[in-house]
Computed example of a mutant assay.
Amino acid sequence: MQITRSKPRLLTLILLTSLAVMSLNMFLPSLSRIASEFEADYSVASLSIGGYLAISALLQLVMGPLSDMVGRRPVILTGLAIFTLASIGCALAGTIWVFLGFRLLQGAVVSGMVLSRAVIRDVAVPSEAARLLAVVGSAMALAPLLAPVLGGVLDQFLGWRSDFWVFALCGAALFILCWIDLGETNLTRQNSFRAQFRTYPELLRSGSFWAYCACLIFSIGGFYAYLAGAPQVGEQAFNLSPSALGLLMGATAAGFMVGNVISTRIGARVGMMALIIAGRWVSLGGIVAAMALLAIGVFHPAVLFAGAVMLGLGNGLTLPGANAGVMSVQPRLAGSASGLSGALTVGIGAVLTPLVSAMVTGPMGVYVLLGAMALASLAGVVAAYVIQALDRRLQPA
């Protein structure tokens, strides 16, 4: 039977990506209160970040090839159904371990973020895909900007469990929207799941794939370090309330939204590679400047906020091109490339978050946090120049 491609509305893809991002950071202003209510250490409660990222990484390894085999639509719908039920479980949890178990199941929502990129790649050529990814990024950046603020306000007035009831409602509503609007876009189905896993060595042998992956890993790695450390630093070093913490947690998204708008407006004119490199330098320069201000005695939460904004701005410039590039190395394996690169990126985040959360305690916590963000950004600069060198080598003389 012939498969007909049905192009979804851009808004549907924006909402799919936004919900995945919201589920990562909306409840973070409540992390200390969750630990306190369950009488657990902060490091145990922070597994709701690191464990969630680890499960997301494993799921992305499966979801990419699975979507290349059975299609994008069924994988996305299944992920949303699991997320909705898991959110209800988190809201009703009576112990930290039950909470963490359902929290890990929430990771199924990552199907929306990973496969929305593959859907775009299915229906657009690489240059247009980069533009559409920038549009999705700039619009969905409102979600991580507003989500921690919303989470902090909900906690303050209704308690932290209200965050997860909101997740459940959003998951159910998006499931209905995708059932109606999200048709199948993958017209070149692969033969078997095992055959799809055999495509990974083909990707892993590509230097360009690894260079793009490294750029994604270190760009987003700085963001994960910030997510892990900012709640504790904000509370201990600056004595911030949950609602103020929510504003601080949304700082990267404010910069990210601006960066995506810039990418959308000038990307076609200046080129994808120029924006990738510029973004890495913007992130590194902003974080180093924040560290310098702290070192000379300007000890204020606005300094950390400014460093996070610059990190987000750089990521907004870099990520649309890097995401489009990693899926264009082998266009017929776009789903596998999206899943594998996403898994590697999130896997590094899963390792980074418990490390950073353990290291940011004490009076030097804010310096440790910014230092981790700066190291990730520096590695991203190196990766961007490697991409440029490989691209030049592959171009005909």
Rank of each mutant, 00 (worst) to 15 (best):
F164K: 05
L304V: 14
C213D: 05
I120N: 05
S111F: 01
F83Q: 06
T17S: 12
A251N: 01
V351N: 00
L146Y: 03
Q395L: 15
V382T: 09
A254W: 04
M249I: 08
P144M: 02
P144A: 01
A308W: 01
A130M: 08
P354T: 07
V303F: 12
A306V: 14
L16V: 07
G342R: 04
I180N: 14
G250L: 07
V368L: 09
A91R: 05
Y367I: 13
R393V: 08
M291A: 06
L319H: 08
V368I: 11
M273G: 15
L182C: 04
G297H: 05
G349F: 02
G79C: 03
Y42E: 15
L66E: 10
G307E: 14
L150A: 15
S56M: 13
G229H: 05
A244E: 15
G279H: 02
I14N: 12
G89Y: 09
V298P: 02
Q196R: 14
V326M: 10
E37S: 10
G152K: 04
E39F: 05
A251M: 02
L340Q: 08
G285H: 05
R131Q: 11
L61W: 03
S328V: 00
R392I: 01
P231I: 03
P148K: 07
G50W: 10
Q106A: 10
M257F: 12
S23H: 14
D41W: 04
G339V: 04
V288C: 05
G286D: 00
I88K: 15
M291W: 07
A379D: 00
I34L: 09
G349P: 13
F99N: 12
A334C: 07
G151Y: 07
P29S: 06
A292G: 05
A230I: 13
V153P: 12
A324Y: 03
P8E: 07
G325W: 04
T95M: 09
L245E: 04
E39C: 02
G151T: 13
S127H: 14
T185V: 11
L293E: 01
P363L: 02
S32K: 11
L47T: 10
A254E: 01
A237Q: 12
L394P: 00
S116P: 07
I348D: 00
S111Q: 12
G371F: 10
A289Y: 06
C215S: 14
F223I: 15
S46F: 01
L142M: 15
S328Q: 02
A306C: 12
F167E: 06
G362D: 05
G285R: 07
A306E: 05
G279S: 07
F102I: 09
L77T: 11
W179Y: 10
Q388M: 11
A244C: 01
D155L: 15
P74T: 10
S43D: 11
R121W: 06
G339R: 10
G71D: 06
L24T: 15
L24F: 09
A384H: 09
A141V: 09
R117H: 02
R393H: 10
A306W: 08
M113F: 04
E184Y: 09
L293C: 10
A91E: 03
A130H: 03
L100H: 14
